[in-house]
């Protein structure tokens, strides 16, 4: 995939903006106020997990060799080509929960609303329209970013350099003192 969703855990403050934007982006009207009054209550595909003050948003990793696709008996879970996101077609889903049980990251949920399975589709409709996923656009702190995989690895390398520099200065100071 050209671009990936990157989560910087330290920047997340748990405001749930991503979940709200996700639900609205997957509603029929795509408008916040109207979405609330829809016949089928919209629900969020991403999961904001909270634990003792720490909070992390969890997205589907869109695995290259996705186990959820290989176990789906109806092809409801599928992708158009190797580079595209893994998507779930609600109408085809029979709710056998096989995908939920084989997901190594546990990011597929069974929703109580309408007894549906929920899974991030990387906002495929928005991507096709040239927009970025709803959660990355809505995140006020930049904890969820939609970046190219090159940029992602460059940033990681820079982070490593920074950590190394800090460690180096500390050892030098200790040696000087």
């Amino acid at each position: 995939m050209e671009k990936v969703v990157e989560v910087i855990i330290g920047k997340c403050m748990g405001c749930h903006s991503c979940e709200l934007a996700c639900a609205v982006a997957h509603s029929k009207s795509k408008e916040l106020v109207e979405a609330f009054n829809e016949e089928k209550t919209p629900y969020s595909r991403l999961i904001l997990e909270m634990d003792e003050g720490d909070v992390i948003p969890f997205h589907c990793r869109h695995c290259e060799d996705a186990p959820c696709i290989s176990v789906c008996p109806t092809n409801a879970m599928s992708r158009t080509d190797a580079e595209s996101p893994v998507t779930l077609v609600d109408e085809k889903c029979i709710g056998c929960t096989a995908c939920l049980l084989v997901c190594p990251f546990g990011v597929i949920q069974k929703k109580t609303e309408g007894d549906k399975l929920a899974k991030c589709d990387l906002c495929i409709e928005r991507l096709e329209a040239g927009k970025e996923p709803a959660c990355t656009e809505a995140c006020p702190t930049g904890a969820i970013r939609f970046v190219s995989s090159e940029r992602h690895s460059t940033d990681k390398r820079k982070e490593t350099i920074r950590k190394y520099r800090v460690a180096l200065t500390q050892t030098q100071e200790e040696a000087g003192a």
Binding site: S70, C103, P104, F105
Partner: peptide, 21 residues
């Protein structure tokens, strides 16, 4: 049908998420 780490088969989806924490 699929190959997953043994450790994962023993965990519920919620705990699989926190295993990555």
């Amino acid at each position: 049908q699929v190959n997953l780490k043994n450790q994962l088969w023993e965990m519920c989806p919620e705990c699989r998420r926190s295993a990555n924490k």
